[in-house]
């Protein structure tokens, strides 16, 4: 049975990856379809890309989504770094269990519940203190920050606990104050985790439909909300074109990141 084991493993992988990638491939292929009927091939065309570029609704929604995603990612990295520091460096303290629960619960909480509860609180707050008034970008950012901080915290905490604490202690020992140690030593060392956390929070925010639908107000539609309302009416070649662009950007970004990492690794090995 030795010789057919590699073959079996290869088959499993081939099947698994086909399952993961065929749907995405079909989206890409049919984005170049002439016909409006997405599933019937009627010749090559890029006309849906042209229509997409002139679809103001999608473009403005994409703009709003990108803004929210950038603000959210930046805020989540700050909050997540603080929370990661507390979990990785502050040892055990009273209230740690409550802290950990609050940090990790959003990871497993159904989106509909997060969305509903935040909206209800925003409404209640408005009745009591008159804020946040109209719902829109601000409320979406707050909601996204709340659940993406959890993800970023996990990323940063694990990097912080892998890091050799004596590096920080050495900096203290050499006369640097705690805040300075954090910015001059800790931040550069965990920089890759900060970048990874930022990208994760950015994607989570860009991807969210459910929570944004709850906490958004009239007039503020994010890209997933526009895509959703279009998709509910049936398949649309413009959405295929949008999907192809998103997949293209992500693939290029990952290839570039992979290449940079590979080059760095090679340089490191060469110098040793």
């Amino acid at each position: 049975m030795r010789h057919w084991r590699p073959f079996l493993l290869f088959t499993v992988l081939a099947f698994g990856y086909a399952f993961l990638y065929l749907p995405i491939m079909s989206l890409i292929v049919y984005s170049f379809n002439e016909s409006r009927l997405v599933t019937v091939w009627a010749g090559f065309s890029t006309k849906w890309y042209g229509e997409l570029v002139h679809n103001d609704q999608i473009l403005s929604a994409a703009g709003l989504s990108l803004q929210i995603a950038v603000i959210n990612a930046t805020g989540a990295v700050i909050l997540g770094t603080l929370a990661g520091l507390v979990l990785a460096r502050f040892g055990r303290f009273r209230g740690r269990t409550a802290f950990t629960t609050l940090i990790t619960a959003p990871l497993v909480m159904p989106e509909v519940i997060i969305g509903l509860s935040l909206l209800l609180m925003f409404v209640a707050m408005e009745n009591v203190i008159g804020w946040p008034g109209t719902r829109g970008m601000t409320t979406i950012v707050i909601a996204h920050l709340t659940f993406s901080t959890a993800y970023v915290t996990v990323v940063i905490q694990s990097r912080l606990s892998q890091m050799d604490v004596s590096i920080e202690e050495a900096a203290l020992d050499l006369g640097a104050k705690p805040a300075k140690v954090f910015f001059v030593i800790t931040v550069p060392v965990i920089a890759p985790a900060l970048v990874a956390g930022w990208l994760l929070a950015f994607t989570l925010s860009l991807d969210d439909l459910v929570v944004a639908s709850f906490v958004s107000g009239p007039g503020a539609s994010t890209l997933p909300m526009v895509v959703y309302s279009s998709v509910r009416l049936g398949v649309s070649p413009q959405i295929n074109a949008l999907a192809t662009i998103i997949v293209g950007i992500v693939t290029v970004a990952i290839l570039v990141a992979g290449y940079l990492m590979h080059r760095q690794e090679k340089q490191r090995l060469k110098m040793q």
Binding site: D164, S166, E169, A170, A171, L172, D173, V189
Partner: peptide, 17 residues
């Protein structure tokens, strides 16, 4: 530690990478 006239050499060396 940052106000002591004492310095330490760490077991892991703790060099800033």
């Amino acid at each position: 530690p940052y106000r002591r006239p004492v310095n330490m050499m760490f077991q892991s060396y703790a060099l800033f990478p």
